[in-house]
């Protein structure tokens, strides 16, 4: 039971991607110009993570070691195509906005990383929980970055105008350089908080 809980929460703080676990940076930078896109991307990745972890864990005793990576890639890619089709059918606007970053979930290192590090040697249920936890952490981070950039960069949140007409948005934040600097500062703040709590941060 304690195992279950520790797996459930590790993705939300201890291994929170992409801040604590510096993986999956491309989507974290690319689609976080608005909170809505960040959340959509996060949820798509969560979907793929849960099911890839589950499938890989179920098949872990059948897949020979030599074709391990190839099999993982096929499984992950299948799930990504599935997500692509579902988004096109039910969330067309979002799928247009996320564009090529949806197929690029295939090469998101978080997913292959979790498959190798967790699903390949743990039972199915725990693996699915791990996928859920890491995915949730990723969704949270992307929504957070997206919110900061959208509120300060465009004056809206999930498309709802928040600031009055007197507020001149920092347009810089919704452009490419803003993404890097915003993510870098959040990472720095999290390190500072970790150090303050006395955690040993190796980065």
């Amino acid at each position: 039971m304690s195992r279950f809980l520790s797996v459930l929460v590790h993705g939300i703080w201890k291994d929170l991607p992409p801040f604590r676990l510096v993986l999956g940076l491309c989507p974290a930078l690319a689609v976080t110009a608005s909170a809505n896109n960040g959340m959509g991307m996060g949820l798509s990745v969560t979907f793929v993570l849960i099911f890839s972890n589950l499938t890989i864990s179920l098949l872990r005793n059948i897949i020979p070691d030599k074709v391990r990576i190839a099999s993982y890639i096929v499984i992950i890619a299948t799930l990504v195509v599935l997500v692509e089709m579902i988004l096109q059918a039910y969330f067309f606007g979002l799928s247009q906005q996320l564009g090529i970053y949806i197929p690029l979930i295939v090469v998101n290192c978080i997913i292959l990383g979790r498959a190798e590090a967790f699903a390949a040697r743990n039972p199915a249920f725990l693996s699915a929980v791990d996928g859920f936890s890491v995915g949730l952490g990723f969704t949270f981070s992307l929504t957070l970055v997206g919110s900061i950039r959208e509120i300060l960069g465009a004056g809206t949140w999930f498309g709802i105008p928040l600031t009055g007409p007197d507020f001149e948005p920092f347009a810089f934040l919704v452009k490419a350089p803003g993404a890097f600097i915003c993510l870098g500062l959040i990472l720095g703040l999290m390190n500072a908080y970790g150090r303050w709590r006395g955690e040993n941060v190796i980065q």
Binding site: P64, K66, V67, I75, I86, A89
Partner: peptide
């Protein structure tokens, strides 16, 4: 090796084309 890889590819192709037949019309409409 060949059998397992082939099986995985087969299953994934099968499931994708099934989902595709269900969703193709809706995707086109959207």
């Amino acid at each position: 090796l060949v059998l397992v890889l082939g099986l995985i590819c087969g299953i994934s192709a099968g499931s994708l084309s099934t989902v595709r037949t269900y969703l193709a019309d809706r995707i086109e409409q959207q």
